[in-house]
């Protein structure tokens, strides 16, 4: 299947959600979280994510983005406040959440094929420590997700042999397997859309810029069909794709798509006083653009930012 065919092929997912839904995908109210030592990570977090949203979480390192994802997943417990995912506590909603962890969490030298890895996405706990379907139906579903994400034909390849961008897309396919309902419209036409939340934690941190754009392009095919929240540093690459941007730095601030104003950049990166590209953007053209910044404090995370 060529790239063009993939892009024009009918989406093997349920029809787009009819309305912004009866039930919001995620509701965080008065949420606070601190580490065991009592250092507060998040305070006074209020956020309402509608079904079908494609939301980006941006913010400085240590601002609490990943913690927020882990709270939604139920991997961390808040100190106070409440979290609901499709109206239920996170622990009960694990069949409605697909998760793409940071690049480093998967053992890349693990001897497994792409298809086996994707099938694992349907894992659920049981008395035998967890199991998942691996029969023909599950394989067919896994193949449809791999096709959707442009990985058709690579299912037998070892996971170590994928490029960075291919691997991240395979991880998205794995996360989609987590749905408890068939997302395949070919088998269940006109079925009620399955509420499903896809969480991605810095999915493109290790992909080159071209691959990043390509990754978001594939991800964009899921827009409207499921709810997506992505932790990202790729503000400039990915901003055309997001339906909303949320800045996370101890608390959350929702912004519209066109939210890249100097004030927002100050909110995102802090006040930059030195000569650097961020400071230039914050001054919004009042000062000339410099060739990179030599001051280390301006680039706390040179590899990932911008």
């Amino acid at each position: 299947m060529s790239i063009e065919e993939i892009k024009t092929a009918p989406l093997p997912l349920a029809a787009p959600l009819a309305s912004a839904a009866d039930l919001p995908a995620v509701v965080l109210s008065d949420l606070a979280f601190s580490h065991e030592r009592g250092v507060p990570v998040l305070e006074d977090v209020n956020l309402n994510v509608g079904q079908g949203d494609f939301l980006a979480l941006l913010g400085p390192n240590g601002g609490g983005k990943s913690t927020l994802l882990r709270l939604i997943l139920g991997l961390e417990q808040p100190c106070c406040g409440s979290i609901t995912v499709f109206g239920r506590p996170p622990a009960e909603g694990s069949r409605q959440i697909g998760y793409v962890p940071q690049f480093s969490s998967m053992q890349r030298d693990f001897p497994a094929s792409v298809l086996d890895m994707v099938l694992m996405g349907g894992a659920s706990p049981d008395r035998r420590g967890g199991s998942w379907e691996s029969g023909p139906a599950a394989r067919e579903r896994a193949r449809s997700y791999l096709d959707l994400l442009g990985l058709g034909g690579l299912e037998k390849r070892g996971i170590g042999a994928l490029s960075g961008g291919q691997r991240q897309r395979a991880l998205v396919a794995r996360a989609l397997m987590g749905s408890n309902q068939k997302l395949d419209a070919r088998e269940a036409p006109c079925a009620a859309p399955s509420p499903f939340l896809l969480l991605l934690d810095e999915p493109t941190a290790s992909i080159d810029p071209e691959g990043k754009f390509c990754f978001y392009e594939f991800l964009d095919r899921l827009r409207g069909h499921i709810t997506i929240i992505v932790v990202s540093h790729d503000l400039f690459v990915a901003s055309p794709f997001f339906s909303g941007i949320v800045f996370v730095n101890k608390t959350v601030t929702e912004l519209e798509q066109s939210g890249l104003s100097p004030e927002n950049l100050t909110l995102l990166f802090g006040k930059h006083l030195h000569d650097c590209p961020i400071a230039d953007l914050q001054h919004a053209g009042n000062s000339p653009r410099h060739e990179g910044c030599t001051h280390p404090s301006c680039w706390p995370d040179r590899g990932n930012t911008v």
Partner: peptide, 8 residues
Amino acid sequence: EFARARGL
């Protein structure tokens, strides 16, 4: 990490 997220 993923196994934990799936509730295993």
